[in-house]
Design a protein around this nucleic acid. Structure first.
Lengths: 337, 337
DNA sequence: TTGAAAGCGATACCAC
DNA sequence: GTGGTATCGCTTTCAA
């Protein structure tokens, strides 16, 4: 049924070694033979088995990508960036949604190891860093994306979250907002911590402060963010500007404001983080701190492939800079406040 | 470096055949040996090579999924559904973004064939159906998702687009909208055609009609949709209800209405299609025709696996029903109109 | 230039 | 219950 290298060899009256050569464009084959063999491969719809090739030592040309949830726009955009770069370089990528469960991470890691992926990108949270060590022992290249695991010696591509927070603070300060609040993801997420930290530092540097009751923690879903935002906004002495640690939370804040009849940005300014597609479809469109998602994905793939090529192993740490994207959810602080 | 079945066998003082048995839980092995061998596998962090296993005739337990763009929320959600079901069944999935280019489709198809994926799901548009035939010849299970290729004998999971269009029309009619318009994707997309057709039929059945100049075609991006919506809405005798063939277009319409100072839904009702996450974050949240995305993905995987198991090959056609999700972008037609 | 043959890491059939 | 061994499809010396 399926043509193999033997079929081609027999049909061409040569040895499989010769066919292998022409498949890989190696060795010295007479032009005549080469053309002849190629013609036969064409005619028989021959597809060399990557499986068999991998078994003999070649790579599988497959990479793994672990994210919490591929249906989340941020990770979907990241996946696209990873996929694009991988395709350019001849690799395909297996995407795995972990829902941030270590158990799932571990299962996927094993699965992908058995399938002998050439490298692994981790964009998901992992509680117990230890579960990555098997990979390192097998010396499978690993790159963390927007995550940090100081205890592990792996490549990392991240963004400067602290700077991101600072950018948000500066923007609000420039618009005259001195009484501000923050809507954060779980404090356990280190990137959120850093964002809040950068935000607070910039504020303090300007002579203002962020009171403890002005920082709310919410879980990932819209509803939860909206709920916390409602608390912040019903405060008798509410903030005039709210910094949210991701776009989804900013949307929650937007909805909360709307529900309270507060106009954005006239009465309250809201700023998000990530600059996913969500930020551009809201009303008003969100001012947000943009992550260079495209770069993030591309560089992660490049790190992996580089290590594969050079078998040189010094773990790289790349830090990319976020940028403020100003849309319509932020404005000058109003006189009435 | 990496432990193989030989290492385990040697360490345990048995043959590789025995080790293979315990890996696969087959044959008769004494409890003692089995436990002993399992312990050794554990200790050596042994991961059986799926590559080698696949070469001997076992499946690769990998499926391919082709979509136009994984960063598009609709496809991201679909991918999640596919991935979830695949994981449950022990498969992993390679995701490929084609940007609807046949050339890309073809390259990916070849790549995945070489990697010997067990089955392929196609959720992308393909101009030339012929490029799928190599798969069929190799008798690789194929399932189309929300696509139709009547010329090919493959599994299909789709939704009843015509019904979806009808649901939208009925909803608008019930609210008193008799002067309505449509924002469609490229007319070449069969699902859009069907949606518009269903919409028109329902309208006509109620005694109304859809004039040709009230149907606009736009490309996939927000900007284009917004532009066409502006044309529709600046009409001196504009429609009071607009049906859009997907949520992104509905957002374009929303923005156009806003730009013209038209309140939604008081002055114009807008209804989308798909019910992606986008529909829930807009302001106002979108009334939309929901696709059962979860089911779509799950059933596609099931069709593939079924065929793999039963090697029975009658192509199935599954048609799922869409449902209207009423949010706040539609309302009773206002008296003034 | 080309071919013979030794793996790669598992599976499965058939003896013992 | 266990072990020997052919086999899967390809890559890669090493000779010729």
């Amino acid at each position: 049924m399926k043509a193999t290298i033997y079929d081609i060899a027999r049909e061409a009256g040569v040895s499989i070694a010769t066919v292998s050569q022409v498949i890989n464009g190696k060795g010295k084959i007479s032009e005549k033979r080469r053309a002849e063999i190629m013609e036969i491969m064409e005619r028989l719809h021959y597809q060399p088995s990557a499986i068999a090739a991998a078994l003999t030592g070649k790579q599988t040309y497959t990479l793994g990508l672990l994210v919490p949830d591929i249906s989340n726009p941020y990770f979907a955009e990241l996946a696209r960036a990873v996929e694009d770069r991988s395709r350019q370089l001849g690799y395909s990528v297996v995407i795995c949604s972990t829902d941030n469960k270590d158990e799932r991470v571990e299962r996927y890691l094993n699965l992908l190891q058995q399938k002998r992926v050439d490298g692994m990108m981790i964009g998901t949270g992992i509680d117990n860093a230890e579960i990555l060590s098997p990979l390192l022992q097998q010396s499978i290249p690993v790159a963390l994306i927007a995550r940090h695991m100081p205890s592990l010696s792996v490549h990392t591509v991240a963004i400067d979250d602290r700077l991101g927070g600072a950018l948000a603070a500066q923007h609000l300060l420039e618009l005259g907002h001195t009484h501000v609040a923050v809507l954060s993801e779980s404090f356990k997420v280190s990137s959120s911590q850093e964002r809040v930290r950068g935000f607070r530092e910039a504020l303090e540097k300007a002579g203002y402060s962020l009171k403890a009751d002005q920082v709310k923690e919410s879980s990932a879903d819209l509803g939860s963010a909206k709920k916390e935002a409602l608390v912040l906004l019903t405060d008798k002495n509410r903030a005039t500007g709210i910094f949210c640690c991701n776009d989804m939370q900013a949307i929650g804040a937007l909805q909360a404001a709307k529900e309270l009849g507060l106009r954005v940005p006239e009465e309250v300014s809201i700023i998000g983080f990530d600059n996913t597609i969500l930020a551009s479809v809201t009303s008003p469109p969100l001012t947000t701190v943009a992550q260079p998602i495209e770069d993030l994905g591309r560089r992660a793939v490049d790190l992996l492939i580089d290590e594969l090529k050079n078998e040189e192993n010094s773990p790289q740490k790349i830090v990319l800079k976020p940028e403020l994207v100003i849309r319509d959810s932020t404005g000058k602080v109003s006189d009435q406040s």
